[in-house]
């Protein structure tokens, strides 16, 4: 009976993973298709990669997207970390409910509403104070920071709740100034969370289509906006080539990051074991 159940679970898992991965594998296979019509196989070729690399619009869009993603990730990590610190460590402060509501609302807000409301804000601002005079890099970056920092704050919050507060208290009791506690204790512990937050904010920004297409202006096409404008009209082999490059890059990045994290975890466990063994040695020596 039990065997039967786990067979069912296991086959569901295989089915689910196949469902997730087969479309992506086919997308990659067809990028090497020589034929102009995507799903009809016309022999292996790098033809569409060549087309892709010779297209200046793609390069421009990629460059703009990367610039936005880097600036966004950096600012979102800084502000998200501050917000996470405030929510976990400051107890009750004035306006806390509003603050925690505002920080988590972007996580579940439909993208069309976020995009529309930010565009209306930018238009209103430019009428009253003349800024932003044009929409593009700055407005997209501001919009991305606003929703990315919410994700960073969640990561930092969970990292901080899992962390032992007594470490900071001990440092304080030993006479360390608050700033010193922050730089020597809190930040090193937060660093992996901040790195994860930065990477997440970076990919969220690279991936966003809806919000960016609301707040962008003429001539500022991010990569998703460019891809979208092309695939709306149907299948395009050069987009398959672009998709392959993106998917392979992301996959290598994620696997590498996962491997490094796994090794660090192993190292940490080993250190703990060593420390425990040392303590045991010390205890037996002192009793002897």
């Amino acid at each position: 009976m039990k065997k039967q159940r786990s067979t069912f679970m296991f086959s569901m898992l295989c089915f689910g993973l196949a469902f997730l991965y087969i479309p992506m594998v086919l997308l990659i296979v067809y990028s090497f298709n020589h034929s102009k019509i995507v799903p009809i196989w016309g022999g292996f070729s790098f033809r569409w990669y060549k087309v892709l690399f010779e297209s200046p619009e793609v390069w421009q869009a990629l460059l703009l997207s990367l610039k936005i993603a880097v600036v966004n990730a950096t600012f979102a990590t800084l502000m998200g970390t501050l917000a996470g610190l405030a929510l976990v460590r400051f107890g009750r402060f004035r306006g806390r409910t509003l603050f925690s509501g505002m920080i988590s609302a972007p996580l579940v807000m439909p993208e069309v509403i976020t995009g529309l409301s930010l565009l209306l804000l930018f238009i209103t601002l430019s009428q009253f104070i003349g800024w932003p005079s044009e929409r593009g890099f700055t407005t997209i970056t501001i919009a991305h920071i606003t929703f990315s920092m919410a994700y960073v704050a969640v990561i930092i919050q969970s990292r901080l709740t899992g962390m032992d507060e007594s470490l900071e208290e001990a440092a304080q009791d030993l006479g360390a100034k608050p700033l010193r506690v922050l730089t020597d204790i809190t930040l090193p512990i937060l660093a992996p969370g901040m790195l994860a937050g930065w990477l997440l904010a970076f990919t969220l920004s690279l991936d966003d289509l809806v919000i960016a297409s609301f707040v962008t202006g003429p001539g500022s096409n991010t990569l998703p906006i460019l891809i979208y404008s092309r695939i709306r009209l149907g299948l395009r082999p050069d987009i398959n080539a672009l998709a392959t490059i993106i998917i392979v890059t992301v996959a290598i990045g994620v696997i590498l990051a996962g491997y490094i994290m796994w090794r660090q975890e192993k190292q940490r466990q080993r250190d703990q074991q060593m420390a425990a063994a040392d303590k045991l040695d010390f205890d037996t020596e002192t009793t002897a």
Partner: peptide
Amino acid sequence: WTSFLLRVYA
């Protein structure tokens, strides 16, 4: 982590 848009395109 991979592009949402491209997964829909697939």
